[in-house]
């Protein structure tokens, strides 16, 4: 099929970013920004997102942006958003990209504070399930059993449930999304853009480097995460109204795990336990709907 040039939406992430080949983050940012448009202010914090944004004097993103400090994506976005309102520029959305470390770990307090005040911005957690920018160390977003440089025998803790934490703040909108489902992701960004208050997107973006897989596998891994129910696609409105956006095929978790070198050491009983935990989580999510 030939796609006509004029039918393609304008790109905000320009060619020539500084991420690894096949990087899921870069794909995710591209999709989010395309849906957001370039009349917006973007905040990034230390993470691969900041690397992708480019070193001075280059800028991969065609929007005004600010590379703030690690643990303050949320109050940075809040400060800008409040300032824009004072200047009468309420129509300009502010969007913050932070990694899983910057969200689940070091930035959780400041995110909670901003969400509690229902500050007006879109927060996108780009989750690649470890500290990849510093070279693959465990975070509280790393799933159980996954190898990282600081969990060499496999992570012993379960992945923190960030969506429930955000729902507990009763923010207007929280949603999961991933690069394997581009239309769903785009629709969620557009929906978030039309809303006000704290809007949270938990975006799973596979990282070939940290997940130890072939460069071309990021989209496939993202699709598999959803189809195995490891990463279901859903929305939470007002902290309590759950909507599941996609009925998965319910494939066995091996479909997802076997793509990735970080799970290579798994024993059959480990896979079983991951399957059991995944099933439990999925049932629980369905109960909430």
């Amino acid at each position: 099929m030939v796609v006509k040039a004029q039918s393609r939406p304008a790109e905000v992430l320009r060619p020539g970013h500084a991420g690894c080949p096949g990087c899921g983050h870069a794909m995710g940012m591209r999709m989010v920004l395309r849906a957001l448009g370039n009349r917006a202010v973007v905040v990034v914090v230390p993470s691969c997102v900041a690397v992708i944004s480019g070193p001075y004097p280059y800028a991969a993103l065609n929007v005004p942006m600010f590379h703030s400090a690690f643990e303050i994506a949320a109050p940075t976005a809040a400060g800008i958003s409040q300032a824009l309102k004072i200047q009468g520029k309420d129509d300009i959305p502010v969007l913050a990209f932070a990694g899983d470390g910057g969200t689940f770990d070091i930035g959780l307090q400041s995110l909670s504070g901003a969400a509690d005040r229902n500050e007006d911005f879109i927060y996108v957690c780009m989750d690649n399930e470890a500290y990849m920018n510093t070279g693959i160390q465990v975070s509280s977003a790393t799933p159980r059993y996954a190898w990282t440089g600081t969990s060499p025998m496999g992570n012993t803790r379960r992945k923190k449930h960030i969506m429930e934490i955000m729902a507990a703040h009763r923010i207007p909108y929280a949603a999961t999304a991933c690069i394997g489902f581009a239309d769903d992701l785009t629709a969620k960004v557009k929906k978030a853009k039309e809303m006000r208050g704290t809007r949270f997107l938990h975006l799973l973006s596979p990282c070939p480097t940290g997940w130890k897989m072939e460069q071309h596998l990021s989209p496939k891994a993202a699709v598999a995460a959803v189809e195995t129910n490891i990463f279901p696609l859903y929305e939470i409105f007002g902290g309590s109204e759950y909507v599941i956006n996609y009925r998965s095929k319910g494939l066995p978790v091996e479909t997802y795990l076997s793509l990735q070198g970080r799970y290579r050491h798994l024993r059959p009983e480990d896979v079983k336990s991951i399957q059991a935990e995944t099933d439990r989580n999925w049932e629980e999510l369905k109960r909430r709907v």
């Binding site: 202010v41 905040v43 600010f66 703030s68 400090a69 643990e71 303050i72 949320a74 109050p75 940075t76 976005a77 809040a78 400060g79 800008i80 409040q82 300032a83 824009l84 200047q87 307090q109 400041s110 909670s112 504070g113 901003a114 509690d116 005040r117």
Partner: peptide, 19 residues
């Protein structure tokens, strides 16, 4: 802005100032 810490207070102040 009644932030949840001084650290966030300064984060908000400096970003608003940059705006």
């Amino acid at each position: 802005m009644r932030t949840e810490s001084e650290h966030s207070a300064m984060a908000a102040c400096l970003s608003a100032s940059l705006a």
